[in-house]
């Protein structure tokens, strides 16, 4: 109906094309609603509880990439834009190149990757860093317990105060506000700092980053994970990654004290934090 009406004029054709294009993008960004209906918690929320893990190569590079030292070649995870590339502004592409040149520095102080210093990886990187995480739900919030350095975050899923001003609070994992949308948990994140990356390939952002995460159960043991990133200081447009998370049934979350690993490597984490070395 809509298409038939706008076909009447040249402008209408353009509008139709734009609409169709926008529609395709929104399909990519949000993906079709899966037929699976997750069991509900006592509070009536989709039950996402359990131990989950991303068994994929996203931790190395979110874009299509060839092999590098210690990095298997692999497909990327960017589903929007359709070319699979993170839509950097020109200056930011140059900066990424520079950052990438310093990811093999053995001294964490000189290494460009914040993870080399065991700094909190940020969101979404913590999701697919390679370590599992456990989801626990109460009627008021969803708790994420990460095996990586015992990190945790609490996502409120009932109305709470709006996020504080970014001038007052900036977090490594942002400030989350969650809600359920049908089967999916949707988490809006704001109030990031500029010290986290998206992967090991120098992909970075500014403190203006906003992330929308979607956790969508596809079956009892598989969950789709999507994250849409917006950062007008670094990117030309929003972009979205998508991957699947698998339920880990055989082992609870264990532990990985990242800073203790620095100790074991003989690295004294006594560098100045004034903040930061980038």
């Amino acid at each position: 109906m809509r298409r038939a009406r706008v076909r009447a004029s040249a402008i209408g054709v353009v509008v139709a094309a734009v609409f169709a294009g926008a529609h395709a993008i929104s399909l990519i960004a949000q993906a079709p609603a899966p037929a699976y209906r997750a069991p509900r918690t006592a509070a009536g929320h989709p039950d996402l509880q359990g131990v989950w893990r991303a068994w994929n190569l996203a931790r190395y590079d979110l874009e299509d990439h060839g092999a590098r030292p210690g990095v298997p070649a692999g497909r990327g995870f960017v589903v929007d834009p359709p070319d699979g590339k993170i839509p950097y502004q020109t200056w930011a592409l140059e900066k990424r190149k520079e950052l990438l040149s310093k990811i093999h520095e053995p001294d964490p102080y000189k290494n460009s990757d914040p993870l080399a210093k065991c700094y909190i990886p940020g969101i979404p990187r913590l999701t697919y860093l390679g370590w599992p995480f456990q989801i626990i739900q109460t009627p008021e919030y969803v708790a994420f317990n990460y095996e990586w350095s015992h990190k945790k975050r609490l996502v409120p899923v009932t109305p709470v105060a709006p996020p504080p001003s970014p001038d007052d609070v900036s977090n490594w994992t942002g400030v989350p506000r969650g809600r359920f949308d049908g089967n999916a948990l949707v988490v809006n994140l704001t109030n990031f700092n500029a010290y986290t990356w998206f992967d090991m390939a120098g992909n970075f952002h500014s403190e203006a980053l906003k992330v929308t995460e979607r956790y969508i159960p596809l079956s009892a043991d598989v969950m789709r994970y999507e994250a849409t990133m917006e950062d007008p200081k670094v990117f030309t447009r929003p972009w979205t990654i998508r991957m699947e998370l698998q339920r880990q049934k055989d082992t609870p979350i264990l532990d990985y004290e990242c800073t203790a690993m620095l100790d074991e490597l003989g690295i004294h984490h006594t560098w100045p934090r004034d903040f930061d070395v980038q």
Binding site: R153, N171, W172, P176, C258, T259, H269, R273
Partner: peptide, 18 residues
């Protein structure tokens, strides 16, 4: 209400260790 907005950042600001 509950404060959902704080974050554990001991190591990230651990200047006194020196």
């Amino acid at each position: 209400g509950r404060d959902f907005d704080d974050e554990d950042t001991c190591h990230e600001g651990n200047v006194p260790l020196v």
